[in-house]
Each structure stands twice: as structure tokens, then as C-alpha cells.
Nucleic acid binder design. Structure first.
Lengths: 342, 342
DNA sequence: CTGAAAGCGCTAACAC
DNA sequence: GTGTTAGCGCTTTCAG
């Protein structure tokens, strides 16, 4: 019994030495047999493999890593406490790396620099081959200084021009949204969005202006506030309960929560969506877009694609390629009933 | 330049040998100095430490792990593709473990058994000291067979009685919700919830019945459907648009989405919440509870507490304690305006 | 109090 | 073809 609890490592302690002994070959031969390389009689190779499988041998990555100077391990440092944006990215990243046998350490720093440093130290101790940094907001952050290992910033930007940053194309997404509304024949389009200090807000605003100006429309309806449904409702009150200025016939919202709030507020006023007013959101957050009445057309930032790309670039950097600069990945328009009658 | 790119490991390759050489001591002495143990002249210890700091020495965890048979590393395997439930758990778990210098490998299996096996193999190769398994639903799953390392199931259950499973107390949460409504003087309480095959649905239903029966009320209003806002709206239609049976004066909903849909549907009908009908949701998902009109009273499963507890139990198991069985952690009631006028 | 040396599990270079 | 051996970086007896 106490034997039983102590001895709870049936196949963990199985070493290549054991395989070699049982297969009646040298330890070097056994090693060669396991790794595809090396000239070996097929017979010998087979015998070794068979024995290895039988006794449940599993090479010790730690020992391997010690030898090659690669741990096949990377770290991911996130500051998005809620996880809404980082989770899809991390998931796709992890998936992409797992395909190459690279495992991912997850660290959450919650915007605490001390915690962040502590995590990085720990990761360096574990000899990670690379590091991915994510954040809640895509505003600039101080670069992380780790001696010599590749770092990549996803959904986040470092203030170092040599850093590689991967971001969604906010401006392009805004153009997509605006042109969709313009294509629908709308001419009084308002942009209701989040706090102006977000770079994403500025970029989306710029895309909005660009699209409207190109179409000969005035991009004069711009409202900035918090990222909440309540703000969506309030903004609609401002736009529609006012005196006599011509009312908007379309809303491009900075996120889906604002869009949903706006949709509800219009509904409360008996204004028909999309007939009287069309709405486009941003994020394509299904719990919002699909539950809203009507379901919301929205811009998808393709976060999983961002995560996959990050994985690929990181692998490239680990194998020696040098990558720098800011790259933006395209967003996509997802049409639902808030712009097009079903 | 090419020198520069090649040589991008300023302090990664610094070994204890270098420290020893520069501090003019033997390598064994240097080691003793780094680790608190061992009898050493303070002077020597200080010199070693100083040199170590100067040249940016950081012990190689891989080498250490090879020696002790502990990697100070655990794996977490998740099947929650959306991340809504698992993220808070993982976050708290990671935090708890990081405090003890244990790093966490994150693996997402997305309910694919082959992928899951592959991940586990990889983790075993990395010699993790323990494994945490999470899932989207808290229904039973086949136990994971890993030779001898501690496994713990969080927000998920294995069909092995020897497994340690940590879950929220669904039944207790339902009692809390129901008693809150009963305490408000409501007598016709309906339970609108998710699909019956979820164990959580059954448990919450049981708690609901228990509380009502104890109060001498009839728990006869039970509606099961999908986990969506739409279902919340539909259920309200069934309950309130019907003929002449006395209408409910309170709704206990299986999650916050259903609760929000119900609140909206009541609003559409001009039924006052909480005056005419009080509503309690489940999950305390802020984007739902706070955006709803009125904001929703809800049951919080305390996911972070669950994650922390998982971390603690896992550490205990790693240091040899034996833990088995299913443990449920208490839920909490969070009161908002859907039950109590502000 | 400090140095020397064995060995954790594995790989790669070199003998045989 | 297969065996031997020297490390990867570190800790830990065991001598001195």
C-alpha cells in the first residue's frame, strides 16, 4: 500500500538505458534507433522500438533540451485579465505551436510590472525559446528586455521600432464597415465609439472618415464614450431625441456592446432596424451579435488568424530569421440582419 | 553585424562554471552559494552572489530538473473552446502556482481525443509534475491515464471514483437563488434553465425544488431549453402570454443569458422588474448582468476560488498527499436591481 | 570551509 | 552496423 503510493511512477522512470538493456544493444544504438537518423539495421531498429513501446519508454525532453540548446518551449505573457480578446489568440497560437511539438507556458501578469518581471525571470530559467506578449488594449507598452530570445507582440505594441508587432487592421475594418453602409445607400452615418485615447479608436475613426470622404459624405457625426451598452443607448438618445437636425440613417459602432445598446435604444423608440437605421458593430462577439435584436452585422478581427500568424513568425524567428516592424492582419465583414433584411 | 545576430545570447549561456571561474572558487562552492543551503563563509557566498549578478547568471531549470526529479511544471488541459468558464479558473490557478515557482503549460484539446492524447504525451515528455483537466461542461468524462502523476479535474468530472474533482456547488447556488426570492415574498417562482442532460441543470433544479418545498411552495414551473437569450424570451412568452393560470412573480434562470432574455421580454410586455416579477440569473457574467435592464441579480460560482483551490490541491498531491473524491465549492449570491429596487 | 567527482537522461562524435 | 565516451548544466556526496 505505502509501496503503492511511493512507487507511483510506473513508466516515468523508464530510461533509454533500460530500453538498451532489454533490447540487448548499447545505449548509443538505442538512441539512434529512437531518432530517425543514423545507419542501423532495420531489424535492430525494430527491436529497440518494440521494447521501448513495451516498457512505456518516453524520452525525457528535459535531458534532450539540455543537450541541444532548445527547449521546444515558449512563453506567453498576457495582460488581458478578462480573456475575451487574448483567449482566441492564445488558443490558435498554442494549436499552431503544438503542431511543431512546441509547448506553451501561460503567464498572466495583470498589468503588474513586478509580476511581469517575475514571470519573465521564471521563463528564462526554463530556457524558453521565444516569448509572445499580449495585452488587453493595443496601446504601446515598454519593450521587454530579455537577453537574446525572440519576442513578438500580438494585439499589443512595444515602443521599440525593432520589435515585431502583430495587430488587427482597425482602419481597414472601419473602411469595410463604412463602405458596407454606404453601399446600402445610407448617407447620414454616425460613428459611436470608445474612449479616444485608444489607438484603435483613432484608427477606426480614420477609416470611417476616409471611406465617407471618398464617397462625398460628411463624417461629422462622431461620438466617443465608454465601451458599454449603456453608452450605445445614451448616444442614440443624443442623436435621435435632439431637436431637428436630420437624423442618422446608419450607425457604425466601435464595438458590439455599443452597437447592441444602440439597437435596443432604437427599438425602444420604435425606429426600425435596418429599415430606418442600419447598424454595424465591431469585434463580432457572438454572444452580443447573435443575441441582439436584430442580430448585428459586425467586423471580425480574425483573432485566431492573428494567433496562428504569431506562432508561425515566432517559429521563424526561433530558427534564426530576423523580423521587425508592425504588421496588420485584415479584418472581415460579417453581415447580419442589422444591415440587411433577412 | 552578423556577429551581432549570431551572438544574441548575452546572458543565456552564462553557466555556473563561469560564475565559479570569475569568483575564483570551485564550481561546487558556487553552487552551494547560490542555493541557500550548505556551510559557507559569508564572504565567499557574497562574492559568488555578486559575480553571479554582474554577469547575469540565471540557473538553468532544465538542468536542475534533470537532477531533482521535479520539473516545477504542470500541464493544464482545457476543452472549453470559448474560454468563458475556463479562463478565470486557469488564471487563478496559474497565479497560485506561479507563487510557488511552478509554471503552467497550456493545452487546448477542443474535445478531440486524439489531440488530447497528443498533448498529454508531449506533457509527459516534458516531465510535468501534475496535470489539471478542465472542460466546458461539468459532465463526466473518461479518466485520463497518465502513469503516476497527480491529476485533478476542475469544472469537470472523471468517471473514476479515485479521481479528485473540484466543482462549483450548483445545488447550493440554486438554493441561494431560490431562498433569496422566497425571502422577498415571492410565491410563484418559475425555473427557466438549460438542456436537461447537463448535470448542472439537474443539480440546480434539485436545489430549486428543495428550497421551494421547504418553504411550502410548489416547484411546478420548470422550463428547459437552450442556453440562450432567445430561450429566455420564448420562455417568458410561454409563461406570460398563456391563458389564465396565475402568472409567476419571480424567475430563477439557469444562466445569465436566459435571465437577460427574460428581462427583455418582460420589458417588452410592460411588466415591471422587480416589482411584478423578480429575476435571478446564474454565472454572474458581468457583460450580461450589468448591461441588462435592470441589472441582474445572479449566482457567482467563484471560478477564481476554484482555480486557486485546484492549485493548492495539486501542489499538495505533488508533495505526496493523496486526495480523491468530488469536492464542491460554495457559490455566492450577488444582488442587483432585478430583485431589489435600488 | 572548500574542491573534486559522480551522475541526472540523453545525444553525437568517434572508434571498432 | 554497433559500442564507447564525452559532455549539456547542475547538485550532492565525499574527501581534504
Amino acid at each position: 500500500m505505502s509501496q503503492d503510493t511511493q512507487d507511483k511512477s510506473p513508466n516515468r522512470r523508464v530510461t533509454i538505458r533500460d530500453v538498451a538493456r532489454l533490447a540487448e544493444v548499447s545505449i548509443g544504438t538505442a538512441s539512434k534507433a529512437m531518432n530517425a537518423g543514423g545507419r542501423l539495421r532495420q531489424e535492430t531498429r525494430d527491436k529497440v522500438m518494440r521494447v521501448a513501446k513495451e516498457i512505456g519508454y518516453r524520452p525525457n525532453d528535459l535531458a534532450q533540451s539540455l543537450h541541444r540548446a532548445r527547449s521546444r518551449t515558449v512563453g506567453i505573457l498576457t495582460n488581458d485579465s478578462f480573456g475575451r480578446f487574448s483567449f482566441p489568440i492564445i488558443r490558435a497560437l498554442e494549436e499552431r505551436l503544438a503542431d511543431q511539438g512546441v509547448a506553451v507556458f501561460m503567464c498572466n501578469a495583470t498589468d503588474d510590472p513586478a509580476r511581469e518581471r517575475q514571470h519573465i525571470d521564471q521563463l528564462l530559467g526554463k530556457r524558453i525559446d521565444g516569448l509572445v506578449v499580449t495585452a488587453r488594449r493595443s496601446d504601446r507598452r515598454p519593450a521587454i528586455l530579455v537577453g537574446g530570445i525572440p519576442v513578438i507582440y500580438v494585439f499589443s505594441q512595444a515602443d521599440d521600432p525593432d520589435a515585431l508587432c502583430l495587430l488587427p487592421d482597425d482602419e481597414g475594418g472601419a473602411v469595410l464597415a463604412s463602405e458596407h453602409l454606404i453601399g446600402l445607400g445610407r448617407t447620414r452615418i454616425a460613428h459611436i465609439t470608445g474612449p479616444e485615447h485608444f489607438e484603435a479608436v483613432q484608427l477606426r475613426h480614420r477609416g470611417f472618415k476616409r471611406a465617407l470622404e471618398r464617397a462625398g459624405l460628411m463624417p461629422d457625426l462622431f461620438l466617443s464614450g465608454p465601451w458599454s451598452e449603456q453608452w450605445g443607448r445614451d448616444a442614440v438618445a443624443k442623436l435621435f431625441d435632439g431637436a431637428d437636425a436630420p437624423r442618422p440613417d446608419a450607425l457604425f459602432c466601435g464595438n458590439d456592446q455599443i452597437a447592441r445598446g444602440a439597437a435596443e435604444a432604437l427599438r425602444d423608440r420604435g425606429i426600425a432596424v435596418p429599415k430606418d437605421v442600419a447598424i454595424v458593430g465591431f469585434d463580432n462577439w457572438l454572444v452580443m451579435t447573435e443575441a441582439a435584436r436584430p442580430p448585428l452585422t459586425s467586423i471580425d478581427m480574425n483573432l485566431p488568424a492573428l494567433g496562428r500568424e504569431a506562432g508561425e513568425r515566432l517559429l521563424a524567428m526561433i530558427s534564426g530569421e530576423r523580423e521587425t516592424g508592425t504588421r496588420r492582419l485584415p479584418a472581415t465583414l460579417v453581415v447580419r440582419q442589422s444591415t440587411v433584411e433577412s
